[in-house]
Simulated assay, not measured.
Amino acid sequence: MRNLLNNLYRLGGLLSALHLTAIMLLIVLQVLGRVLDKLLLWVGFNPLGLHLPGLAEISAFLLLGATFFGLAYTFWQGGHIRVTLIIQRLPLGLQRWLDSLMLLIAMAITGFALGFSVLLALDSYAYGDLSIGMVPVPLWIPQVGMSLGLLWLFIALTDALFSLLSGRITQLNTDAAQE
């Protein structure tokens, strides 16, 4: 089970990286197209008009995917910001209790966001909602990515809570990545 969860978190990190790579490639293609058009004008030819329509909207959707797919991986690797100035000075038992409480609160917030993002994706699908812009994208597509990312984060939070309560890890974000 541990390997399955770790692979799930890694998959989220990989999907996040692929989304960021796609953004980079689209922007590079757009810039190269503009440079080529300028060079053609400079040497006296007509520009080809190389332009990627809807690049801003598509990049925004890819950024949404990169952000949400990377949440669980970043959490499990200890990359999320935590204020440990006070908590690290407390006894280990109290630290575990506060970490457990914070995980429960994070699970509640993530579960709330997950529920509403799933409902939003279902509504967008049912009503055929499209993005406004040059390229109409069915809104349920990026919303499903958001929902999956929140689901993976919820799983990671639940995993961390059970790991903490079972004693498999003693502190959040320090022992979890070493499992």
Rank of each mutant, 00 (worst) to 15 (best):
P138D: 11
R96N: 01
L148K: 02
A126L: 11
L153H: 10
L120Q: 11
I155T: 04
Y125F: 15
S117F: 06
G111F: 02
T158I: 08
P138F: 06
L151W: 10
L119N: 13
L122D: 00
A126H: 12
S117H: 03
L94M: 15
F154L: 08
T110H: 11
Y127H: 14
L119D: 13
G128A: 06
Y127K: 15
D159I: 05
T110Q: 08
Q143A: 04
A113C: 15
Y127R: 15
D129Q: 13
R96G: 08
M102S: 14
I105V: 15
S124F: 08
L139C: 09
S117K: 00
G111R: 09
L98M: 12
L98T: 04
G133M: 11
G149S: 06
A156F: 03
L104I: 14
D159K: 02
G133H: 10
L101P: 09
M102T: 13
L150F: 11
L120V: 03
W97N: 06
I155N: 05
L151I: 08
L122R: 11
G93Y: 04
D123T: 12
S124H: 08
V137I: 15
L157T: 04
L98P: 09
L157V: 03
M102E: 06
L130F: 12
T110R: 06
M102G: 14
M107N: 07
P91C: 09
L94G: 01
